[in-house]
Design a protein around this nucleic acid. Structure first.
Lengths: 239, 239
DNA sequence: GTTTATTTGTTCGTATGTATT
DNA sequence: AAATACATACGAACAAATAAA
C-alpha cells in the first residue's frame, strides 16, 4: 500500500518506528541530514515528512537541538485525533454497536447548521440520529447533518455496521474538524437514550467537519455520558 | 516591526491585503508564480507564506485551480492555541482579575500529579489555587502544581497581576499541553467560589504543560462555569 | 569564555508531476 | 490538446540556536 508521495511514505515509516518503540518518547530523532541519507532523499523531503508528523502532534522540533518524540497522553477514552466513534472503539479494542434512530432527507434544519454550511446549506442533506454503544453500554447520541453528495445510497444501509467516516472517505477526503465542547445537564429524552439519571451532567460536542480544502462535509451535535467519556487533545503554544 | 524571515513578512502582507479587502472572500489570489515575481522571492518562499496562512484557516488551496480567501465569520472567544487565562482575556479585550486562595510549597500532592511529573515528582513544587474573574464575574478556579525551579521568588508575589505563563517563560519556553476535558456537577465548595447553584454542571479540565523538549512544567486542574465557558479546538484527520 | 561542531531554519534555483480549465 | 496552477522533489548555501570541546 504505497503512497504516491515520498514524504508521506517517510512520515508513515517514522510513525511506525515511533509506535514500535524504535524512537521512544522524548528521545531525539536522527538529524534531518542523517535521515535524508538513510532514506536516500533530500533534506527538504525529510522536513516535509517531519512537518506532517508535527501537525499531528507526534513530533516536536527545537531549533539548534533536534527533533523529539512528543510525550503521548495515555489513551483511555476520548479521541486522540479526529476519529469517528467506530474507529476510536476499534483502536481501543472494544466492541461498538450502533442503533439508528432516525435517517431521513432533511427538509429543514436548525439555523446553527444552516449557518455552518454557508452556501452549501441549500443542498440535499441527510439527517441522521444514532445511538452508539460500547461494550453494550449506551455511550453517546449523535445528531448529524451530512451532505448527501458524500454518502452513497448503499452506504446509508450499512450505517449500522460501517464507520460513517470510512463511508464518506470513499467519496471525499476528510481534513479537519472544528469542535466545541460544553457541559450540560441531561434532558428527559437523553436520559432514556443514554441510561443516565436526570440531573447528571453530559458533555455536548458540536463539530463541523471539513475536507482538506475547507468544504464542509457534516455537522455533528453529540451528547456523551460524562461518567464514561472524556476528551483529550493537545494544544500547541504559539509564539 | 520587521520580521527576520521573509516568508512571515509576506504572510503578514497578504493577511493585511485580505483584511483591507484587496483580496476578497472566495476570490482567487494571484498564482504562486505571480506572487513570487511580485515580491521578488522564490516560489518556495511564497508557498511557505501561504502555508502559514492556511494553518490559520485564512486561505485555502486547491490543486490545479488556485488559492482562495476563506470566508471568515470567526466567532469570538475560545482558544485558538495554548494560552493562559490572562492572555486569553486580553485577546478578547476583557478585564481579568485574579484572587489567590492558596500559595504554598507543596509537601504532598495527589497521586495523579505525582504520576504526571514522573521522575521530576520529587522536586520542590508550588501549590497554587486561584480564583479567576472575567469582567468581575467568577469564571474558573484553578488548582496548579508547578515546579519551583521555573518560578522565581519575585514572580510569586506578582501572580495576582501577571500571567503565570509569562512568568514561567522568563525561565523556560512553554511548548504544548495535554488536556483532558470532562463534565461534572458543582460541589458545595466550588458552588461558592464560582457563584453557581448546586446541581449545575461544570467543565473540569486537567492539563499537563510541557516545554518543547517534553519536560513537564505544571499540572493544572481547572473548574470552569459551564454557562460561561466552552472549549474550542481543531482536530486534524490522521492518515 | 571562546571556538567549533551539530542541528534546525530559511531561501534560492530548477525540474517534473498532476489536476483543472 | 494546450495552458495554467498547485504538488513534489533535488541540490546547494547560509543563518541562527545549541551544545560540546
Amino acid at each position: 500500500m504505497k503512497n504516491k508521495t515520498i514524504f508521506l511514505d517517510i512520515a508513515n515509516e517514522l510513525h511506525k518506528r515511533i509506535n514500535e518503540g524504535v524512537y521512544v518518547t522524548s528521545q531525539k530523532l536522527p538529524s534531518e541530514y542523517d535521515l535524508a541519507e538513510e532514506f536516500g532523499v533530500s533534506r527538504l523531503t525529510i522536513r516535509k515528512a517531519i512537518d506532517s508528523l508535527i501537525s499531528q502532534n507526534i513530533l516536536v522540533k527545537e531549533k539548534g537541538k533536534g527533533t523529539y518524540v512528543m510525550k503521548q497522553p495515555k489513551i483511555a477514552s476520548g479521541l486522540g485525533g479526529l476519529y469517528g466513534f467506530t474507529e476510536a472503539a476499534k483502536r481501543q479494542g472494544k466492541r461498538s454497536k450502533t442503533k439508528i434512530i432516525e435517517c431521513t432527507i432533511a427538509d429543514q434544519m436548525p439555523d446553527k447548521v444552516k449557518q455552518a454550511f454557508g452556501k452549501y446549506a441549500d443542498e440535499k442533506m441527510i439527517h441522521l440520529v444514532r445511538q452508539r454503544f460500547l461494550e453494550d453500554e449506551p455511550m453517546t447520541v449523535e445528531d448529524i447533518y451530512v451532505l448527501q453528495r458524500y454518502v452513497s445510497e448503499s452506504s446509508i444501509e450499512q450505517l449500522e455496521e460501517q464507520s460513517l467516516f470510512s463511508e464518506i472517505e470513499k467519496n471525499i477526503e476528510i481534513g479537519y474538524s472544528h469542535q466545541e465542547v460544553e457541559a450540560i445537564l441531561v434532558t428527559e429524552d437523553l436520559s432514556r437514550l443514554l441510561d443516565v439519571e436526570v440531573g447528571q451532567p453530559l458533555l455536548l460536542v458540536h463539530s463541523l467537519t471539513y475536507s482538506p480544502s475547507a468544504k464542509p462535509i457534516l455537522y455533528d451535535t453529540s451528547f456523551y455520558r460524562a461518567d464514561k467519556y472524556t476528551f483529550k487533545h493537545t494544544l500547541q503554544r504559539k509564539h
